[in-house]
């Protein structure tokens, strides 16, 4: 892929992540950002890091650069790294488990950003109080991956192939 195409793909991926996050923000713990990060990493592994950087900055500009924003700096790269490591696997069931586990662990991962502020007690109490939301997040992530992984994977693989021509 040439440089112009690569920059365009990165920008489009960031824009899609941001738009999808905003559009679904009204739904309780139902989101597509996780699944898209997985799919984008599989289809465009070299572009995902730039897209995530732009996405995080856009989130900060839109919602404000607060403590919560710091968690975005490591939560999404962790998921992208996981997806990168298993990128050869294209089983919807496998990604349903990974995406579900990520949703379930989202609160715990985010809770680490409270470690410097209130230590382990604050981190744990923050995490535990949000567990019902994490469970909903895990279930919804599993369902979205099970339903959407295959069609989106096929579409992105096709786009990636065409762009390489």
């Amino acid at each position: 892929m040439n440089k112009v195409k690569s920059i365009t793909v990165t920008a489009l991926m960031a824009a899609i992540l941001f738009a999808v996050q905003i559009i679904l923000s009204g739904l309780p713990n139902i989101e597509l950002v996780s699944l898209l990060v997985i799919l984008f990493t599989i289809a465009f592994p070299k572009n995902i890091w730039g897209a995530l950087a732009v996405f995080c900055v856009l989130e900060g500009v839109f919602y404000g650069f607060g403590t919560w924003w710091l968690m975005y700096l490591y939560v999404w790269p962790i998921l992208a790294l996981t997806a990168y490591f298993f990128r050869k696997n294209n089983s919807p069931f496998f990604w349903c488990v990974v995406n579900g586990a990520f949703g379930l662990m989202f609160g715990l991962l985010c809770a680490f950003s409270y470690l410097p502020i209130g230590g382990i007690p604050m981190m744990l109490s923050w995490w535990v109080s949000g567990i019902p939301f994490d469970i909903v997040h895990g279930i919804s992530n599993s369902v979205t991956a099970l339903v959407l992984f295959k069609p989106l994977y096929s579409a992105l693989e096709y786009i990636a192939r065409e762009l390489k021509k």
Partner: peptide, 8 residues
């Protein structure tokens, strides 16, 4: 997930 729910 079950253990987390029980913990909560």
């Amino acid at each position: 997930a079950v253990l987390m729910f029980a913990g909560w």
